[in-house]
Design a binder for these strands. Structure first.
Length: 929
RNA sequence: GCCGGAGUGGCGGAAUGGCAGACGCGCUGGAUUCAAAAUCCAGUGGCCUUCGGGCUGUGUGGGUUCAAGUCCCACCUCCGGUACCA
């Protein structure tokens, strides 16, 4: 016999546990029998279990991927055995920059690279025995997939957000105001474009000429590219935006209904960053620049305002600010504009022109990151003009400083240095006046700070402005020392509003400002609209055309493709040159027959930006339900039957953006009637990262990456799966350990030997396994195990479930004979975790059919009950002995049994028992004197 | 700075307010073997011990309770998120 034949013989006949043989065997069996094919519509109870689909990188899978995938697979297999209809698909988030960069280097088309990577990922996932319905596999790069991504974009483009109804509606239903109508033919179209959920702006991008690409903010460090350290230029480019901010309120409120961890919800809430406050107008006059207060004009303006009310759009004679602390208006001693604020130039006095221009230019060069990260010290410059504080008529100077952001609120603030840390720092820096308008109503002393002055003296100093604090109503800061303040603070130096607590002040001044037409309540969000275009080739093309005039220049009119004109594929013939000297998208160099279109005698140029990678992942969970549908993105009947996703598992790195974007799209689709619910993911679980064996983040460059191929070759897929679950709680961050894999492999070996006769020539049962009635103890162990494993699965506590099965195995290996029925139950319990080994053992136990669908074992509470139990006895809370008592023993019986225990009796002798605490079934504790 | 999460043996971790350290790794000793691997058995938080046991122990300091890893207060450390959001 040659070596190969010997190996073949030993592998196929010798009944040692050999995953290298049985794993491929069962994978083929499942595939051939379509064991995990999911019906079009659920039969009975449904469960939609979704993994965050991977980006198929060239490196292949690493052991972090299968963590969540194993967890969901276990949940799916467990539920199938409970008779639930389970939807469990897998696909590929396949657009992405690496394939395009590879194309620039080698000329290999991105699609080719992508398909090769997908094939490798698919092979690796199949190797791990996940019970996906592979018939539903999709990639975001499939033409048949992204035609519907484009279709959804058309829905977004065709939708405006009705604020009063808080929902998206067809753009055709947008009411056109008369004054717009009056502006002429083109005005209504322009008005509509301004209200669409998809709109265009000129936005700054980080263009890196050396790399020939536009970089994301986080790829720019200290003004140069993160990779290579090349120069990065901030330049403006026409971009598509999605109006996610319109949905900010709903995105925040609807979190309440979701079964997500509070931590993740909070992360999203903070990202959305809703705040309530007021917008207030400060008079600046119309003869600019304004050097001194124009008292008469100001009075006239105020009179006008009290008649007209607060205008929707701010005029040119005023500066509109947003504040959450309108109660500190009397403390506003200066104002600040963001350098990009449109009023900066008008407000700059001639003698300040040079300084302001230089400052703004310098600010423009800084990236957002530099502006925050490096700017420890406040910078700014005075414009030379003043505004009038509407509550007291005071003239206050207007400054320009980059600590005010153009993208938040109105891009202008009133500065209250007495009660805002940032304004305080700025005022100190530039020697601006500080006026306290709040005093604490009680004092509390923080760590290391003792203030021995009487409260009245403290208040006097606050009123005179010698000391002040920034803050909200619960925490204050006396300049730099922290002090806890429990009671609300009280207003001072605020004219008619003195002695009001903060909340009441806010309410009152909001009313008064509104009545005078100077202010109104307002809500703001940190959330920004979504920059939706990328200057890449390898992404979904926008289904949009730009109209050209006779000279080939864009007219500004946009024409959307009709849904019937989809899909719009990428051009087949593209040259990928590494040199790319303009920030314009690569598609600008697409062949003319792709780039230019003539419809009804008009020439159009296609949009050449492409969509970001987020686009495809925003709705893939819908397409899985009906992946081949050519008429709709998903059949409504199918969608209603399966949605929402009942369990969504993925990394916490997507806790904010992906989940927010997907929820946003889903709500738009809901508003427009394309889906039946307004939230896609009911329950969310974030698996923790798996670190390298050295406790560092796993990566190729650190040399601590673990390749699943190796682990499977060495130990088998079941061992890999089992170990990933045994390491610790799913949500915890935990280090890899090859010794640990070897440990769970040992467990599988033991399970195998418990059931199979290893010494036999052929596959046959261990002689100890017999059809016998289990002893009471065996039965108790069996049913305790079933109960515990079931409970652990229900709360996704996989590590403890595995340890229960280890205890079972440790016990039964010592038992002879071993009841065959008990062995079968264990195999069923094990099957979601180690499906290949379980199938093989199930077959060995004489079953012809896969164990994917037999009913999940039930436990019998009566079998678990013990006759006598051991109960600890404590004296003064310290363990002093144990007693054996009937399980049903009541308090009195327990106490007397405890007193009768010789050791306890000895220790109690001569002492007075003050109290005896007896918890039946648990413990006895004597409190003695 | 702010917001989350977590600190338990040599390591990963387990414990509805009720016997801390389940289960696994590692380690020690033994059986088996010509030997090794594999397997099996026993032990394994620390200190002390007359070998009965005793004391001590869940980041630190306080508190509540008959009883605290678990609840409360303060602090320390680590990890993650965020970054002038008015």
């Amino acid at each position: 016999m040659d070596a190969a034949a010997k190996r073949r013989r030993s592998e196929s006949v010798m009944p040692r546990y050999n995953p290298a043989v049985i794993e491929p065997k069962w994978q083929k069996y499942w595939e051939k029998n379509r064991t995990f094919a999911c019906p079009r519509l659920p039969k009975g109870r449904k469960l939609y279990v979704l993994d965050m689909f991977p980006y198929p990188s060239g490196d292949g899978l690493h052991v972090g991927h299968p963590e969540g995938y194993t967890a969901t697979d276990i949940v799916c297999r467990y539920n199938r055995m409970k008779g639930v209809s389970v939807m469990h698909p897998m696909g590929w988030d396949a657009f992405g920059l690496p394939a395009e960069q590879h194309a620039k280097k080698t000329g290999t088309p991105p699609r080719e690279t992508t398909e090769k990577n997908i094939a490798n990922f698919r092979r690796q996932l199949r190797m791990l025995g996940f019970s996906y319905d592979w018939d539903r596999e999709l990639a975001t790069t499939d033409l048949n997939y992204f035609r519907w991504t484009q279709w959804i974009f058309l829905v977004l483009y065709d939708t405006w957000f009705d604020q009063s109804e808080q929902r998206g509606r067809p753009i055709a239903e947008l009411p056109i105001p008369e004054e717009v109508e009056a502006e002429g033919e083109a005005a209504p179209e322009r008005y509509r474009d301004e209200h669409r959920l998809a709109y265009q702006i000129e936005a700054p991008v980080n263009w890196c000429p050396a790399l020939g690409t536009v970089l994301a903010n986080e790829e720019v460090v200290g003004g140069v590219s993160e990779r290579g350290g090349h120069m990065v230029v901030r330049t403006k480019l026409r971009q598509w935006m999605l109006r996610i901010t319109a949905y900010a309120d709903r995105l925040e409120k609807d979190l309440d209904r979701l079964d997500w961890s509070e931590g993740i919800k909070l992360l999203q809430r903070n990202w959305i960053g809703r705040s309530t406050g007021a917008e207030v107008d400060f008079f600046i006059g119309d003869r600019l620049p304004l050097a001194v207060s124009q008292q008469e004009e100001y009075e006239a303006w105020k009179r006008r305002r009290s008649k007209t009310g607060f205008p929707k759009k701010p005029g040119n004679d005023m500066l509109r600010i947003y504040t959450t602390r309108a109660d500190t208006l009397f403390g506003a001693t200066y104002m600040v504009l963001a350098p990009e604020h449109p009023f900066v130039e008008r407000l700059t006095a001639p003698e300040q022109r040079e300084a302001v221009r230089a400052y703004c230019e310098q600010a423009a060069r800084k990236s957002d990151l530099d502006r925050t990260d490096l700017a420890k010290e406040k910078t700014g410059v005075w414009t030379g003009s003043y505004a009038v504080n509407p509550v007291n008529g005071e003239s206050i100077p207007i400054w320009v400083a980059d600590y005010v952001l153009i993208s938040y609120g109105t891009g202008a603030i009133m500065a209250v240095p007495a009660h805002d840390t940032r304004d305080f720092e700025f005022a100190e820096q530039f020697d601006l006046p500080i006026r306290a308008v709040l005093k604490a109503s009680r004092r509390y002393f923080g760590w290391g700070y003792v203030d021995v002055r009487p409260l009245s003296e403290w208040h006097r100093q606050q009123e005179s402005g010698e000391i002040c604090f920034t803050g909200d109503e619960s925490k204050i800061r006396i300049c730099q020392s922290e002090v806890e303040l429990l009671d609300p603070s009280i207003s001072i130096n605020s004219g008619p509003y003195n002695d009001l607590p903060t909340a009441e002040f806010k309410r009152k001044i909001a009313e008064d400002l509104a009545a005078q037409g100077i202010g109104r309540a307002a809500v703001n969000y940190k959330l920004r609209d979504w920059l939706f275009s990328r200057q890449h080739f390898w992404g979904e093309p926008f289904p949009l055309l730009h109209e050209l005039d006779d000279d080939g220049r864009p007219t500004g009119r946009v024409r959307a493709l009709a849904p019937s004109e989809l899909p719009l594929d990428l051009p087949a013939e593209m040259a990928f040159d590494a040199d790319h000297d303009r920030p314009e998208p690569p598609l600008d160099k697409a062949p003319d027959d792709w780039l230019y279109v003539t419809i009804d005698g008009r020439r159009y140029k296609r949009e050449t930006n492409t969509m970001p990678q987020w686009a495809g992942s925003c709705w893939y969970y819908l397409r899985f339900l009906d992946p081949k549908n050519a008429r709709a993105l998903v059949d409504p009947q199918v969608e209603k039957a399966w949605m929402p996703v009942d369990l969504y598992v993925g990394g916490a790195e997507h806790a904010v953006l992906h989940l927010l974007y997907a929820r946003f799209w889903h709500k738009v689709l809901f508003d427009r009637g394309h889906v039946g619910g307004d939230e896609p993911f009911q329950k969310l679980v974030n698996q923790g990262m798996i670190l390298g064996e050295n406790g560092e983040k796993m990566s190729k460059s650190r040399g601590n990456a673990v390749n699943p191929d190796e682990v499977v070759r060495e130990y088998g897929a079941d061992s890999l799966r089992l170990f990933e679950m045994f390491m610790g709680p799913l949500e915890a961050v935990k280090p890899w350990s090859m010794d640990g894999v070897s440990g769970v492999r040992g467990f599988l070996d033991r399970v195998w030997r418990m059931i199979v006769d290893e010494r036999a020539e052929t596959m046959q049962l261990n002689p100890a396994v017999q059809v016998v009635k289990p002893s009471a103890e065996q039965n108790r162990v069996l049913h305790k195990t079933i109960k515990a494993v079931t409970a652990d699965l229900d709360r996704m506590s996989f590590n403890t479930a595995i340890s229960r099965m280890m205890e079972f195995t440790n016990f039964f290996l010592k038992q002879e004979p071993r009841p065959r029925a008990a062995m079968e139950k264990l195999v069923l319990l094990l099957s979601p975790f180690a499906p290949h080994a379980a199938e093989e053992l199930w077959a060995a136990l004489g079953h012809d059919e896969s164990l994917a669908f037999p009913p999940w074992p039930e436990f019998d509470e009566a079998a678990i009950k013990e006759d006598t139990i051991e109960v600890p006895v404590q004296i003064g809370g310290k363990l002093r002995g144990r007693i054996q008592v009937p399980a049903e023993a009541d308090k009195a019986a327990l106490e007397s049994a405890a007193r009768a225990e010789p050791k306890i009796a000895e220790l109690l002798a001569g002492k007075t028992v003050v109290k005896a605490i007896v918890v039946p079934g648990r413990m006895v504790n004597f409190v003695v004197k």
